[in-house]
Amino acid sequence: MHNVDADPLDRLTEWHAAGKKTALATVIKTWGSSPRPVGSHLAVSEDGDFAGSVSGGCIEGLVIEAALATITSGEPAQLEFGVTNDMAWEVGLACGGKVQVYVESIS
């Protein structure tokens, strides 16, 4: 049976070995009742496949977009989501927490 917590890096390793361009998003800071702890990973391939999570599913769409942009540009990015952020409110980080996510390409 597969360890679901290790899944994002295992998948990233597979994509990387297959020669695909990839990116990794990591929760680097949380405030309040954020659903995933610091260090949580979301792995993204150039095809838009993804594994893991950085929230309970609320902000994954935006993080995947940012990851795909990072794959193209090669530039890492920091994203912040919280109740004070209109964007995040829209996508529904309704738990009242705040998270900071670091997105980088593997290159």
């Binding site: 290790a6 890096l9 990233l12 390793t13 990387h16 990794l24 670091y102 980088e104 390409s105 593997i106 290159s107």
Partner: peptide, 23 residues
Amino acid sequence: MKADLFEALSLNIAAHKACAVVT
């Protein structure tokens, strides 16, 4: 993350060896 660093990280994780990436 550079490819060589990522590949070394993968190997450490597969071998269950404790390690850290500092960014």
